[in-house]
């Protein structure tokens, strides 16, 4: 159940890995879609926390493996919009909260540490020499 909302908050935490360590790149992902209740207030308060470009890119990466017909509309504007209309918020809701990455790997763009995802749960454990 890694959803893009949490993926967007997650940087690599291996020892010494402090720059260019976000966003973790998806590889070989399997996705499930689960409907979630639409909550525009939550989305609006959450928006300032998002790294927008990372979200747009990760949505693309995650959706590369699944047909658009199944996945639904994941298109987000390249810039975070100022006016939040209903259609935009619905797309954002879908991308952030309804796409669940169930299997795959998240790879740190800097140190290349692999964080495997199994059963929807990312394994964030580090080996002894990787602990900061």
């Amino acid at each position: 159940m890694v959803r893009l909302i949490t993926h967007n908050l997650l940087a690599c935490h291996a020892k010494g890995c402090t720059s260019n360590n976000f966003p973790l790149q998806f590889q070989n992902v399997q996705i499930e879609l689960k409907e979630a209740e639409f909550n525009p207030t939550f989305l609006e308060t959450f928006m300032p926390k998002l790294e927008w470009k990372a979200l747009v890119d990760s949505a693309k990466e995650a959706s590369a493996t699944i047909s658009r017909y199944i996945l639904g509309n994941t298109s987000l504007p390249l810039e975070q919009p100022e006016m939040l209309d209903e259609e935009f918020l619905k797309n954002l809701h879908h991308v952030l909260l309804e796409i669940h990455v169930e299997e795959g790997i998240m790879i740190c763009p800097n140190c290349k540490h692999n964080y495997p995802i199994s059963n929807g749960i990312p394994n964030m454990l580090l080996a002894e020499h990787e602990i900061g």
């Binding site: 935490h13 926390k49 790294e51 749960i121 964030m124 602990i131």
Partner: peptide
Amino acid sequence: MLEVALEREVEGDLFLQDIGQGFGFRPGS
């Protein structure tokens, strides 16, 4: 423990993590 959480279909996202190793969450998450 996480598996049981999954079986119960809890709503949040879960991470397998040793908190003593620290978090990688971005500032202000």
